[in-house]
Structure formats: structure tokens, C-alpha cells
Simulated assay, not measured.
Amino acid sequence: MINSSVSNCPVPAEQQPLNEYEELKISWLFRDCTLSWREYITKMVWIWGLSWVVAAPVAAASFTPNKYIAQFVLCGAGGASVGVVLGLIRLYLGWSYIRDRLFSPVIFYEESGWYDGQTWAKPQEVLMRDRLIVSYEIKPIIRRLQITSLCLAGLLVAGTIIWHLL
């Protein structure tokens, strides 16, 4: 049964917040946030490992690995973390955008181009459905990203302390 308030929605299908959420949830990078903690951390470690491809030569140019192994490892690890930080920022911005679109009682949309934007006030049942999705699906993802960012910041601080002790 199709809800009449949703079927009368003037927002194009690809701009409806629920459809944007469903697309984001299955897209390549964003779906990793919905995995179990173990799988999610594994994906983050893969991003960090792949970032070593760029970070290792830069660290080796600064600190010869056979002479300054600890500095090379810390510099490379810190440099490789940039890839993870950029990934986390992209994930956070994408999920926050969808959260805001779902949570908002009024949706801005474009009918045929950038020059003819309109707004649509969500009916109460659509607003309640969207806010439930935010509460039970998106907030845990955003919290996971925040926890990951805090852990990464902690590791960078620990690396800085170790660097100064060398």
C-alpha cells in the first residue's frame, strides 16, 4: 500500500531524503560504516595500509629507515593517517548531510536545474518516519565515526609523545 502523502510528494525521486539514504547506504565507501565493528575497523586499517604507499617514500626521504627506524615508522604512520582522516571527513560529511535532510521538516529540491529550487513541507507521518531512521540508523553511524576520530586523535597524540621521547 502506497502512503498518499508520499505518493503526492513533488520532490523528484532521486532527491527524496529516504531514497538518498538508501543510495548512500549501499554506495562503496559509505556502506562500510554499516558493517560490524570488526569489519569496519578492518576497512579503516586497509585505508591506512594503502596510504602507506604515499607516506612511506616521504618518510624514507626524511628519515633513512636503516638509520632512524623509529622516526621512519612514526613519520610514515602519521602520514598514512592522513588518508584515514580524509576518509573519515568524507564519511562524516555524507552521513551528516543525509541526517540533516531526513531530520528537517522542510526539504529543498530542484525541479529541473539549479535555477528553479522549491521547498516541500513533509507531512507528519513522513517526518516521523524519517526521524526514526535518523535516531536508529544514522546516529549510531555518526557516533561510530566520532569514536573512530577520537581514537585516531589519541593515537596521533601517543605518536607525538613517543616522538619527543626518542
Rank of each mutant, 00 (worst) to 15 (best):
F30C: 13
V45N: 07
K43I: 11
L29P: 09
P17M: 02
N8F: 05
V58W: 10
R38A: 12
W48F: 15
E20A: 05
V45A: 12
P10I: 04
E23L: 08
L50C: 09
E39T: 09
S62P: 07
P17E: 03
M44K: 11
W48H: 14
Y40V: 05
E39W: 06
W28F: 15
P12I: 02
Q15M: 01
S51D: 08
S27I: 04
Q15S: 04
I47R: 08
A56M: 00
E23R: 12
I26L: 10
V54R: 06
P57D: 02
K43H: 15
E14M: 07
P10Q: 05
W52H: 09
I47E: 02
S36I: 07
D32S: 14
A13V: 14
C9W: 05
N8G: 10
V11L: 03
S36L: 02
L18W: 05
N8M: 11
R38L: 10
A61E: 10
I41M: 12
W48Q: 13
N19C: 09
P12Q: 02
A56S: 03
W28E: 14
T34R: 06
N19F: 11
R31P: 03
Y21D: 01
V54S: 10
L35K: 13
E22L: 09
A56R: 00
W28V: 11
L35E: 13
I41C: 07
R38M: 10
A60I: 02
Q16L: 03
L50Q: 13
L24Y: 01
M44A: 12
D32Q: 11
S36R: 05
D32N: 15
E14L: 11
E23D: 14
A60H: 00
L50R: 13
V53I: 12
S27R: 08
A60W: 02
P17W: 03
P57N: 03
L29C: 12
V45R: 10
W48I: 12
T42Q: 15
S62R: 15
V53S: 09
V58Y: 12
L35F: 11
T42F: 14
W37Q: 14
L50G: 07
W46N: 15
Y40L: 03
E22H: 05
I41Y: 11
V58F: 13
S62N: 14
K43S: 13
Q15H: 03
T34N: 03
R38Y: 09
L18S: 11
A60V: 02
L35G: 06
L50P: 06
W46Q: 15
E20F: 07
E23H: 13
D32A: 12
A13T: 12
W28P: 05
A61C: 14
P10E: 04
W37F: 14
S36V: 06
A55T: 01
V58R: 06
W46M: 14
T34H: 10
V53A: 08
K43N: 14
C33H: 04
A13W: 14
L29F: 10
C9R: 06
S62G: 09
I26Y: 09
I47G: 01
P57C: 02
E22R: 09
F63Q: 00
T34W: 13
V11Q: 00
V53F: 08
A60G: 00
I26C: 08
Y21H: 07
Q16N: 03
L50N: 12
V54F: 13
T34E: 07
P17K: 01
L35R: 11
L18D: 03
E23P: 04
